[in-house]
Design a binder for these strands. Structure first.
Ligand code: ZN
Ligand code: ZN
Ligand code: ZN
Ligand code: ZN
Ligand code: ZN
Ligand code: ZN
Length: 264
DNA sequence: GAGTTTGAAACT
DNA sequence: CAGTTTCAAACTC
């Protein structure tokens, strides 16, 4: 099993006690080695300790197979049905910060809170938990059932935009928002997740394509088979709508450090 | 930079 | 599963 761990611009840490081999460490959590920007102490998250890192990763994966799957899943780029384009895999549990500061993982990733969040007094600027415009599978299914025609338009327009991007016709590397479409299904590179100098922030951070492919989306995202057959969309189409893909958290434009790629 | 607040991760 | 502790980041001054 190959592990793709690189450093990436904007990812760094200042860990003191975790030795950067626990998820407390942002670098480790993002599947990157620590880099020049890190000010960590007793860091084991380096090429030199590849085995240690791999061991720590396996240990984590054993407990949580999704541990290294990006927490933010892209779903849609913004429209009346589903204005919020991303969704946190587990949701947040903010108690005191009301989801309007970066303490909140949803807000930090520029996505609204969903019904899966257990936040209190949610004031997330990207979408408040429980509002209809917040993405979650239930809302999408309801929309499919209640507004099939609108959903058809969304489906078509999304397909169109994705196809344009795929063909290179649309090549904006300056996203309108942090929530722009990215079709990772056609992302074929397996050796380079992250291009230190030229990367746009549409790349998924810290996960190999293969790794993502091997791990299904959050089981909670799945829907009942019964619901699928009760409307005019095919299962493939519904999956397509529910699977408008994972997205990135916005990458701060800090000066980058990049450790030497070393795939094994 | 020091000190506080915060919530995810880890632990029990 | 829930309650507690640990941890590093976000925030405040
Ligand atoms: Zn670290
Ligand atoms: Zn680091
Ligand atoms: Zn480190
Ligand atoms: Zn929150
Ligand atoms: Zn949330
Ligand atoms: Zn919230």
């Amino acid at each position: 099993m190959t592990t793709k761990i690189k450093n990436g611009r904007g990812i760094s840490c200042n860990c003191k006690k975790s030795k950067c081999v626990q998820l407390y460490c942002d670098c480790f959590g993002a599947s990157f080695y620590c880099g020049e920007d890190c000010s960590c102490e007793n860091c084991l998250n380096r090429n030199d300790y590849e085995d240690t890192v791999e061991l720590a990763r396996r240990k984590r994966k054993l407990r949580d197979p999704y541990a290294f799957v990006p927490k933010i899943h892209r779903v849609e780029g913004g429209n009346q049905l589903m204005p919020i384009a991303g969704k946190h895999r587990k949701g947040c549990t903010c108690k005191s910060s009301m989801c309007y500061q970066n303490y909140c993982e949803c807000y930090k990733a520029n996505v609204g809170c969903t019904s899966e969040c257990r936040c209190k007094d949610c004031q997330n600027n990207y979408g408040i938990k429980g509002e209809h415009n917040v993405y979650n599978p239930t809302h999408i299914m309801r929309a499919i059932n209640e507004k099939p025609n609108d959903c058809k338009k969304v489906l078509d327009s999304t397909r169109f935009e994705l196809s344009q991007r795929q063909s290179g016709y649309l090549q904006d590397s300056t996203p309108r928002t942090a929530l722009q479409y990215t079709d990772h299904r056609n992302y074929t590179s397996t050796t380079r997740l992250y291009t230190p100098s030229t990367s746009t922030n549409t790349d998924m951070i810290g996960t190999s394509r293969r790794e993502f492919d091997n791990v299904p989306l959050d089981p909670k995202s799945y829907i009942d088979d019964d619901q699928i057959w009760n409307n005019q969309f095919t299962p493939e189409e519904i999956n397509e709508m529910l699977d408008w893909n994972p997205c990135d958290p916005s990458i701060p434009s800090s000066t980058g450090s990049a450790s030497t790629p070393d795939d094994k």
